[in-house]
Nucleic acid binder design. Structure first.
Lengths: 260, 260
DNA sequence: TTCAATTGTCCACATTATAAGACAAGTGGC
DNA sequence: GCCACTTGTCTTATAATGTGGACAATTGAA
């Protein structure tokens, strides 16, 4: 099975979950017997059963003694697909409430990466914060932000616990003008796992965003981790005929300050 | 340490890697001794040393007997940050070559999800393919595509091994008009791990895209997995004052057919 | 009812990961 | 050279995980 960081139980768990998602099993009939599956994967029946137990916990399968193992029809709850459109509107539409926990708030020296991204002068410090955002009481994002200190002095700890960061900047006459955003994937560290209530090593969506004002000055550096089962990036793209060829012009818009 | 799917060695590996990235250690001095780190994490020195060995393999640290453990200055190679702009142009600019392995190619019944997304009639089949894309000989994406059968008959297996799917459709007079795209994160299954040459359980960027023609008909369903260390989604956003508030209008564009 | 096939449960054992400690070998300041 | 401190290596013990087999309980069809 190539290199593995996971126990056999977890590997088989992942493989079977993938097969279910791909529709590799009869929609009606059910799964092969534990004997044959164990033989196929080359593991003991005990190990295979542990993998099935994980799938059962997830609600993907149902097991009936004497009968067999069957696909569960009740589908899993879908993550909130956040149109890069306007996040705030979307959440409100769904009648959901988001809540914020401000975990840390102070002023410190920025990392070289952050200093470069924000275009800080040597020695310039940042307002640093660590937050967690919940939806219906369930955590879905874990946010780290850095703001140049002089800007960061415009709001207080209490302000940040109540309002989105970009909204606070807006109130102080600082308008975001453009930004660059990167999306990647990472494993949950023990810290992130605790904050987002997932297992250590669970997959997370990782986003980094650098926001600039009209003059090009960096005003916010955001690093966010999202639970993929509760949050997804969605974007609509529209074709656009251009000189250099066919392109996709994103039809999506994102409202400022929604999650930062 | 909360619930964990990972061994202690791997947990500490992730934690230390995160700390290094956050600049928690002296830039010059180096890391604390193995004794104190083992004590801090509440593990034996053997386990801690295994975690350090992983970091050393990654090139993040250097260990010198008698002296200590130090941060390695040589930075890791950055992933290709793919501006949602135009992927093709980007890759060409960098003087890189991409190559495709066509792993599977056939016609089959689509999954309910796919049939719904493409708006297929009951019983309608799809052209199904599994591909792997490499950059400079190194795999970075693993692609599954579904195309309605009548459209899928317009090209052959050989065609698909040579050209991007949307380019093939274009050649046959089928123009992509708009699309919806979702980005999430997943763990590598044994299959995906083998194709992308990563460890089982490694984090992957998961993208799903549904492409429609001008009439609104679904012409391609794409599901892609990317190695985050070699590929990243990047998008530029520009502020746009609107009636409903401040919005971000994506300044990014993506060229059609770049990776599909 | 009978019977083959299924899942549920238990046990003894092997393999692997981790723990705790001892000691060797190398480094750098004194 | 001396010495405190570091990483490298080894041994032994314990815990976690996986193996192989046996048997019970349940199901559904013949």
């Amino acid at each position: 099975m190539a290199v593995a960081d996971l126990s056999k139980t977890r590997q088989i768990h992942l493989t079977l979950r993938d097969r279910i998602a791909r529709g590799a099993f009869d929609r009606d009939g059910g799964l092969p017997g534990e004997q044959s599956l164990a033989a196929e994967f080359g593991v003991s029946r005990v190990t295979l059963r542990r993998a099935l137990a994980l799938l059962e916990e997830e609600g993907l399968i149902e097991r009936r003694q004497g009968a067999g193992t069957f696909l569960s029809d009740r589908g899993k709850p879908q993550p909130i697909a956040v149109e890069l459109a306007d996040v705030m509107t979307h959440l409100v539409e769904m009648g959901r409430t988001t809540q914020v926990n401000l975990l840390e708030f102070d002023y410190r020296d920025p990392l070289p990466d952050v200093a470069r991204a924000l275009g800080l002068k040597p020695g310039e410090r940042v307002q640093w914060s660590l937050r967690r955002r919940l939806i219906d009481g369930a955590p879905f994002s874990f946010l780290t932000t850095c703001v140049p200190e002089d800007i960061g002095r415009l709001y207080t700890r209490r302000d940040l616990a109540r309002r989105p960061l970009l909204a606070l900047l807006e109130l102080n006459g600082l308008a975001a003008d453009h930004a660059t955003q990167d999306i990647s994937a990472e494993l949950a560290t023990p810290e992130a796992a605790a904050a987002l209530d997932v297992a250590i090593g669970a997959p997370l969506i990782a986003m980094t965003r650098v926001v600039h004002d009209a003059s090009g000055r960096g005003i916010e550096y955001l690093r966010a981790l999202y639970r993929p089962d509760r949050y997804t990036f969605r974007m609509a793209l529209a074709r656009e005929a251009g000189a250099a060829g066919v392109r996709w012009a994103p039809a999506a818009r994102e409202m400022a300050g929604a999650d930062a």
